[in-house]
Amino acid sequence: MPMRSIWRTLDRRLARDIGLVCLADGVVGLSYGAISVGGGLPLWVPIVLSIVVFAGASQFLFVGIVAAGGSPIAAMVAGLLVNTRHIAFGLAVSDVIGTGWRRWPGSHLMTDENVAFAMGQDEPEQRRAAYWAGGIGIFVCWNIGVVIGGLAGSVITDTDVFGLDAAFPAVLLALVLPALRDRSTRTAALVGVVIALIATPFLPAGLPVLIALAGLLFYRAGKPALEDARNE
């Protein structure tokens, strides 16, 4: 899908929502950069991670482990574990990513936020536009935020004071709410939440979210969704 048609397909409300999520992610990136440098890591570590890994949760985990004196190999394994959820995301959104060369940048731009944005749209064109605009916007804002945060370094040490840790889950919750209107999906998701919360004290980071997939045992596929019926 050419860039121009992405912008044409986005309606104003969706474009504004995407912009705000990008902005919120920029602020989270700021706190990540500040925490990394404040924890004693050289500036290039959070910046390089943000560009080549580009997955917030795993980056926080990685710098947290290394800054605490842990082994970079342990940090790497933990990061990989947290990122396994992208396999399922990729299967779910492969049609909006497209084919050919687009799969390369499209895969790298995959985040929780733009996957949720894409799932929230009814029309295939809107899904594609939401995914790409969200992915590109988040990539730009996140990396700018990380650089600024890293440079600010020790000035902002406690981002919790600003309540930023509540912003990320709230953003994601707002994004998944539309999909939870479907009863069967909601049941599966709630069972998954209970499983993940029970498992959290016992399992390494990343695994609880993954085993939440067991909630899918309670999922029953319904009639073909409206947009699929329209496509045929």
Binding site: L180, G192, V209
Partner: peptide, 27 residues
């Protein structure tokens, strides 16, 4: 449909764990 539901289950679990837990304990 199952794959779409799987993505939503993962995202919802991520919301719950990042909202309610910190490391291995409550947030």
């Amino acid at each position: 449909q199952l794959l779409a539901a799987a993505a939503i289950v993962l995202l919802t679990a991520l919301v719950a764990t990042s909202a309610l837990t910190d490391g291995h304990g409550p947030a």
